[in-house]
Amino acid sequence: MRQLLAGKTAPILIVLLAIGLFWYAAAIWMNAPWQQTLNQRAGLENVSAIDFVAQTWAQDKPLLPAPHQVAGEIWNATVGTDIASKRSLAYHAGITLSATLLGFALGTLLGVGLAVMIVHNDASERSLMPWIIASQTIPILAIAPMVVVGLGAVGVTGLLPKALISMYLSFFPVVVGMVKGLRTPEAIQLDLMHTYSATPWQVFAKLRWPAAVPFLFASMKVGIAISLIGAVVGELSNNAGGGLGVRLLTGSYNGQTIQIWAALFIAAGLAALLVIAVGGAERLVNRAMGARP
């Protein structure tokens, strides 16, 4: 028992359990006033405490849906619905996922390109770096509606506007991480390459790039999580396109709280999967490059 508690799994499970219990309790507390009104209207008197609690956990549009309601909705909307249907959460998750991945790929490419430029050219470091950092202190997600609507007005709709927002959000961690990574080789190693009369390209491909790979993956984990946020927020401005953001928005217009929570959890699961996938790729690449475990 003591060994179990000393690890990480048991404490995490206990904390999760506590959160779950707290959630059920909060659901009773928050849904109770509305349930009382409902019962009065229906003329129900003398509802026993247990029945009343069960009622608060089974409302149609609860203020706070109980976890099992959310889980049920997720199950119904993914497995229980045809995947091509507009009611299927899997369909909407697919739309968000494709925008996220496209934006993430573009952002990573842009970030790596900028980092290579910054490392190899003094002038571009001096002119770009302050602006790259400054660009992150501004609330860039605010431009999301404008990108979507502006590009929509000139006929560019669908994936690309959302992907551009994701790209803008995800390039920053990659630039910063890669500049650091490409600079990790020490002077002595660069000198060694020099004595081999290595060309600049060889120095890059055989020394700088391998040294920067761990930094690249660390930045990509951050980048893919914020790519997803960019895609979801981009969807808020384009009701017709579908996606998890649209589910959030329609849910909030119609008061469908269970739908909102389900979309939220799918988005969270998607973020977790993406981060785990990048982590898996990191391990594979590390092994292929002969890193010591």
Binding site: V232, L244, G251, I260, A268, A272, V275
Partner: peptide, 13 residues
């Protein structure tokens, strides 16, 4: 790492 911003509609409610 999660898109916490998605709780906005719930908070508005």
């Amino acid at each position: 790492a999660l898109p916490i911003i998605g709780i906005a509609p719930i908070m508005v409610m």
